[in-house]
């Protein structure tokens, strides 16, 4: 009895108001099934215009169908080798892909699913200019299995870039036995993802022998986020070769200690965009490349970067479509993606 009494005294400090409603179930929350009921009428079309890009059995990114004859756009830095990739959509449909045009500026790549017709493509007709702060937006997630809602959450703007980084801090002195010794690794960085650790010694980068740390910065700074570089390093006398995908430098510097920790994963390239619409939809990095629509079901852009816990960027259609549309039209005549 006494124990129980003591327990209750402790509880005293932490009890909620008796008249309070119970906590919301997941289904009742903003992106729960009961709330998403509001967008039911456009959910089907929202889901149908998305597909997943795979390399072997790994999802690389999401694609948006932009032509019923299998043309799609996806995030270029997440889908480096479309010729080797596959696209999957709907109920276990799948096709090989061909790469048509890659734009480093927009971080988008135009591809085509080989031998595919009759997919549900978006039309970038409506102007995204009319979309304002606080307006509801929707996107497919999980390759078109579900939808999410959120609002445009900040002012439309340009996002500057500051090149690529790998996320290592290096010893400035030359290391015995050659190479450059790593002294620190940034959290969630390409180096961390590749399994590099402090005390590893970098001996080769992009095919070049390393002897001074400044050279590492030079080699990486000339590249784009999303690019793969070959890295050779020495750990406990063993030499190991790996490939590392570079990420946006700004993000790595800001997040060196993992300050942005509960973000659910971020994109490799998060900056250097000519204009973005920022929104608060709870998306995943692998959802990038998916379409962003208004509540009438009009496609207004493509999700291009998961940046942090509260930020996703989408490229407004008018930024990229005038560049991609003529290329798509030209590719159509004569048709190239015949049955393989």
């Amino acid at each position: 009895m006494k124990l129980r009494a003591i327990l209750l005294i402790v509880l005293w400090i932490d009890t909620s108001h008796a008249e309070s409603r119970p906590p919301l179930t997941p289904g009742e929350r903003t992106n729960g099934i009961q709330t998403l009921n509001a967008v039911d009428s456009i959910a089907r079309q929202t889901k149908d215009c998305a597909a997943l890009i795979y390399l072997k059995d790994r999802v690389l990114s999401t694609a948006t169908w932009v032509g019923a004859d299998g043309y799609f756009l996806t995030k270029a830095s997440d889908a480096p080798m479309l010729e080797k990739a596959k696209i999957r959509w709907g109920d276990k449909k799948s096709a090989a892909t061909r790469e048509i045009y890659r734009s480093v500026v927009h971080d988008l790549v135009l591809g085509q699913a080989v031998g595919v017709t009759g997919v549900s493509a978006v039309t970038f007709g409506s102007k995204s200019n009319t979309v304002g702060y606080g307006q509801w937006l929707t996107s497919p997630t999980k390759g078109g299995k579900e939808v999410r809602i959120g609002v445009m959450s900040a002012q439309r703007r340009k996002i500057r870039g500051d090149g690529a980084a790998i996320g290592v801090r290096m010893d400035e002195k030359t290391t015995k036995g050659g190479g450059v010794r790593i002294v620190g690794i940034a959290e969630d960085s390409p180096a961390a993802a590749a399994g590099l650790r402090p005390e590893d010694v970098l001996i080769e980068l992009a095919g070049e022998n390393l002897s001074e740390f400044m050279r590492v910065n030079e080699i990486i700074h000339n590249r784009q986020p999303g690019e793969q570089v070959d890295v050779k390093y020495r750990r406990a006398g063993k030499i190991i070769s790996i490939q590392v995908r570079l990420a946006s430098r700004t993000k790595i510097l800001q997040n060196w200690e993992g300050e942005d920790f509960a973000n659910g994963g971020i994109s490799v390239r998060t900056d250097n965009f000519s204009q973005v619409i920022q929104h608060d939809l709870p998306l995943h990095p692998l959802d990038m490349g998916s379409p962003l629509l208004d509540l009438k079901g009009h496609a207004i852009g493509i999700n291009i970067a998961r940046v942090d816990r509260v930020t996703t960027f989408a490229l407004p259609a008018e930024v990229f479509w005038k560049e991609f549309q003529p290329i798509l039209e030209a590719d159509r005549h004569p048709p190239k993606a015949l049955k393989p």
């Binding site: 909620s16 929350r29 959450s153 608060d280």
Partner: peptide, 20 residues
């Protein structure tokens, strides 16, 4: 350039001192 960042959602839980 970005401005204040807006988020719209729902109260999930209420306790004596806090909201989730």
């Amino acid at each position: 350039q970005r401005g204040v960042v807006l988020r719209v959602g729902k109260i999930v839980k209420q306790t004596a001192n806090s909201l989730q």
